[in-house]
Structure formats: C-alpha cells, structure tokens
Amino acid sequence: MSSPYALPIARLIDELCKLPGVGPKTGQRLAFHLLHRRPEDARSLAQAILDATEQIGTCSVCQNLTDTDPCAICRDSARDGSVICVVEEPRDLAAMERTGEYRGRYHVLQGAISPMDGVGPEELRIRELLSRVQGGGVREVILATNTDVEGETTAMYLARVLKPFQVSVTRIARGLPVGGDLDYADQVTLARALEGRREV
C-alpha cells in the first residue's frame, strides 16, 4: 500500500517509528511537529543525533559511554581509585552520581546476566573488570547491580569470580524503599531489611 504522504515525510515517519515506544501514530505526530518547527530546530536536532552517535564511545577503563577516553570520572584525580562501584548500565552510574555520596570510580557492565535470555557472563564487560582488579590498587568492589533476578545473578557471579583476588567485595543494601509501606513489602525484602537493621 503506498503512503498517502510525500516521500520525504513518509521516510521521516518511517525512521521515527524505529525508535522504541514510537508507533505509526506517534511517528506521524512527531513528524508533523518537526515540520511545523523552524528549520534550524530540525537541523540542531539532526546535528545532536549525529554528534552523539559519532563522538560517543566506551571508556577503555570503566566501560561507560564517553566522548573522551578515559572518561571524565576515570581521569578525575580527586576520586578514590581504590573503590570500584559496579553498575549494569550508564544510567545506573548517573543515578549513583546524583546521590552526591560516592567519590570512588565505576565499572559499567553494559548489561546483566540473564540465563533465560541466553545472556551469559562473556557478553558483559566482566573480563575488563577482572583485569582492573588484577592490575592492583583496588581495595573494594561495590556490587551495585539491580536487585532483580538478573542483577542478583550478576552480583553473585561477580562475587564468585572476584573471590581469588585480595579485595573486599560488598553488595549495596537491599530493603525497604524510603517512603515504602511495610504492609506491602514482600517477605524477601522485609527479611533483608530486618537483617540489615542498624542501631539508631
């Protein structure tokens, strides 16, 4: 079936529809929105997409996405290089940074082990982490993967492979979220919260 739109519009809609969460209707709406804006806005958007895709690579140290290698965090001499916080995705690193509480370095795995989806340890940046730890100077590895099954699997796997090294391996605390309702917490969460209780 031929598109009712002129070819350039149809192509734009087609490209937009390849984005996650964008269906044909949303694609049309976005395309017409772009067409109604000033041409320089469109150019600036196109340039931003190009710049990001062309200039961003992975940091050779922490595997985070970066435009310089090593990335700004790995180059920052004010940070404590003896502590590595391991996260699944770059957005998890951003979340940790927003806390403003952490002054060590990171390692981004670029995913989590998911046996059912056929994602094994070799698909992640685990080898790079091990060679960082092997390289020395690391005192503690903080496992800050998600608390879902994939994240727990990954954390347990990392704990196992990090065991031969002389580093302390810690896992972030799991328990009740701030503002959470005790009544609605599941048993595993509550049990963990109880275990991790602190004197006040």
Binding site: D148, V149, D181, Y184, A185, D186, T189
Partner: peptide, 13 residues
C-alpha cells in the same frame, strides 16, 4: 517505582 504496592512479582516467587 519505589514504594509500588505490587510486591513479590519477581521471578520464581
């Protein structure tokens, strides 16, 4: 979402 009232919807539960 933190604080969601749907608990225990993790695999194997």
């Amino acid at each position: 979402r933190p604080g969601s009232r749907l608990a225990g919807l993790e695999p194997f539960t």
